[in-house]
Amino acid sequence: MKTSQYTNTPIHIPAPLRSYTGGQSIINVNGGSVEEALNDLVHQFPALKQHLFNEEGTLRTFVNIYLNDDDIRYLRQTSTELSEDDELTIVPSIAGGCPAVSFG
């Protein structure tokens, strides 16, 4: 079993999810990789899981994780390893558009 090399990696929580973290905007988590860090986050706050992950257990399509200023999609996804002084941020992407019916 892989052991967590680093502890106390802070994760910035977006405002609407703070109702599930007791109002805390930053949570310190344990883990040597992004995956381990996220697992620890939802272990500490189980109600977050439904908002971050879909039924298949993968991150929802609009949920992005930033390691410092980099999207982990362009690194090694959730396998990206964490180093001392790293910070994680949960970042949603947003999209939408007009209804099918216009004013006519």
């Binding site: 609009f62 939408g96 558009g97 209804p99």
Partner: peptide
């Protein structure tokens, strides 16, 4: 278009 959410807005909504 009217100022009401579309099916796309709902499908693409975030938290």
């Amino acid at each position: 278009h009217p100022a009401r959410p579309s099916a796309t807005d709902l499908a693409e909504a975030t938290f």
